[in-house]
């Protein structure tokens, strides 16, 4: 399945369908600013990614190299790009 489809499903599971319906999620959607995820929701989202892709990617390691500014500015496109590159 396309990475972006998988991630949009995870976003829906984390923040709830009713909020997702109100949003226009695209590759530029930032997790904190646009999707208004708080930190514990980003933890949930990260755990779903880790459970789904397993050892194919080192998502924890990738996130841990980011400073706060980078985490705040993280958007959907950046994660899709990371996952697709890591798997190829």
């Amino acid at each position: 399945m396309d990475t972006v489809v998988v991630l949009k499903q995870f976003i829906t599971e984390v923040i709830g369908e009713e909020f997702v319906e109100e949003m226009d999620i695209d590759m530029n959607s930032s997790f904190t600013r646009d999707l208004e995820m708080d930190s514990i929701e980003i933890v949930s989202f990260s755990e779903k990614i880790k459970a789904h892709y397993g050892d194919q990617i080192d998502f924890t390691g990738w996130l841990s190299n980011m400073d706060l500014d980078q985490l705040i500015n993280l958007n959907l496109g950046m994660i899709v790009e990371y996952i697709d590159n890591a798997r190829n």
Partner: peptide, 9 residues
């Protein structure tokens, strides 16, 4: 707060 204060870094 919650555990996310530690989780990322």
């Amino acid at each position: 707060s919650n555990l996310s204060v530690y989780y990322f870094n």
